[in-house]
Design a binder for these strands. Structure first.
Lengths: 273, 273
DNA sequence: GCCATCTATTCCGTATATCGGAAGCTTTTG
DNA sequence: CAAAAGCTTCCGATATACGGAATAGATGGC
């Protein structure tokens, strides 16, 4: 009948809701009754769920403060997640190298549904503001350079779906109409990078290149966030060049062997056999 | 008393079991029936649980390969959360600095039940082998330097409990008898670091220091893993010194204020007021 | 130091969500 | 192209999770 209730039903959903709630209460944790209130559950229910979660190591009770916070097991679990093909591990050294070389902040973004998620970041010396925020931060796919770089290099089909879904979500974030977005996407596909200062974050600017799979579709983006002055006409091409080189390196590591032909995938700059 | 059934019961537990299973299948993911078999559940059950987990963003299906893997949302969940006092965030730059300075691999370990879990690691240029493995990897508390450093600095009570529980688990990992383990613990407590090359991993060696809370009990360990030659009599004290300094710095950041007295906790090397 | 209030925990009958067998449908394999 | 394996849907029986109520414990005010 009439579609989805947004309301959580299964105990699994409730348990996950608790985890999410605890994640959002930065570091302080939450008490049982707080959780119950926030989730509109009764204290006994929360108590039971928490008990299970504690037993499973997902939640840790602070005996003294009577607060609950996320357990280490969850962090261990999550560390394994969001690491398709060890993307994060592969990119970590690259991020470090890039931020050291460029002296700017570097972001690694991946797609998650209709968002881009920051998988990792390496801080540069310049304080910056970004849509992406810290590791784990999300941004609507298409907003911001890294995010846009991913969107531009999705399968056409998926891209259309995302555009359709995200256009309404972009209202009030500067990208007003579809035509503009499509123009931008075309430009990014053409140039191979996203850089146009959107002016959404005053004084801030960025460049991003997609990390492509063997079919030429984006699996991630490497993005530089910095202050506008540091991305002038002179420096931009240099940065883009470096980024592209690193992105290609990542691609090579991601697709070491063609799964069908059992030989190194075709990427530019042939390495060792 | 006849103890706990290991068997999962509630659907929440089953769901978490799936997540753990997916975490253990490094990056490749698992198919529905594989999960069913591994967890001794029926396919319909797994199907329903997976459906929920996918809806909740904790698991991502790979349409093409019919495999399920942990979702980025799970990663984002944990990444955005305040860790136990942001331990990981605090330590990240330290790990990077250490691995850059020492040119060795650095591990951040925390206790989880009767195990130590690798919360983070920063790769050095020397390829190493370790018990800990990658981020999220677990090792029996007491096996390996980092793990031992934590065990040695637990509450006496907890320490005894862990020793009791873990001794049987250590069979065949080199630490054979209780006396030896206790001797090692005493030595670590005395020196303030764990370093003895256990010889369990030929050619590999390590040093670790505990990160202490305000009561002097371990909350984590910073650990260096490297090849034996790089931890000779000459270099070892230097490395230990650096590690201790960093561990103290972490402690200070973890316990910025004494919760009772509302003033900076007492740690060595008074910083700014 | 005592009482009032809020929170955490236990108990238990009820109701509902979960389970798994069976069968239909899809994809992979030979 | 046929067979097998895997995935998904359906549905009735049952076990599991739920929440009200009462107890125990903590916190704070007086």
């Amino acid at each position: 009948m009439a579609g989805d209730d947004a309301g959580a039903k299964s105990s699994l959903q409730r348990g996950l809701a608790i985890l999410r709630l605890l994640a959002s209460t930065n570091d302080g944790g939450a008490r049982l009754t707080d959780i119950a209130r926030a989730l509109e559950l009764t204290p006994p229910t929360v108590h039971r769920l928490l008990k299970t979660l504690v037993e499973e190591g997902m939640v840790e009770p602070d005996r003294t403060t009577k607060r609950y916070r996320l357990g280490i097991d969850l962090f261990a679990l999550a560390a394994q997640a969001g690491n398709p093909a060890n993307l994060r591990d592969i990119c970590r050294p690259i991020l470090l190298r890039l931020s050291a070389t460029l002296r700017d902040s570097i972001f690694l973004l991946v797609r998650s549904g209709f968002d881009a998620v920051c998988l990792d970041r390496s801080e540069g010396p310049f304080p910056i503001r970004s849509f992406t925020g810290d590791v784990g931060g999300r941004v609507t796919l298409g907003v911001g350079q890294g995010s846009l770089a991913i969107l531009a290099f999705l399968h056409q089909e998926e891209r259309e779906e995302v555009i359709r879904f995200n256009l309404p979500r972009m209202q009030g974030v500067g990208i007003i109409d579809e035509v503009y977005l499509r123009t931008e996407i075309a430009r990014v596909r053409d140039l191979g990078y996203a850089s146009r200062s959107t002016g959404l974050l005053p004084g801030m600017s960025g460049v991003a290149v997609p990390v492509l799979d063997r079919d030429g579709h984006a699996v991630a983006a490497l993005s530089v966030g910095t202050i506008s002055e540091r991305l002038n006409e002179e420096r931009l091409p240099v940065v883009v060049d470096i980024l592209k080189r690193e992105a290609a390196s990542v691609s090579r590591q991601l697709n070491p062997f063609d799964p069908v032909l059992r030989r190194p995938a075709a990427v530019l700059g042939g390495g060792s056999a």
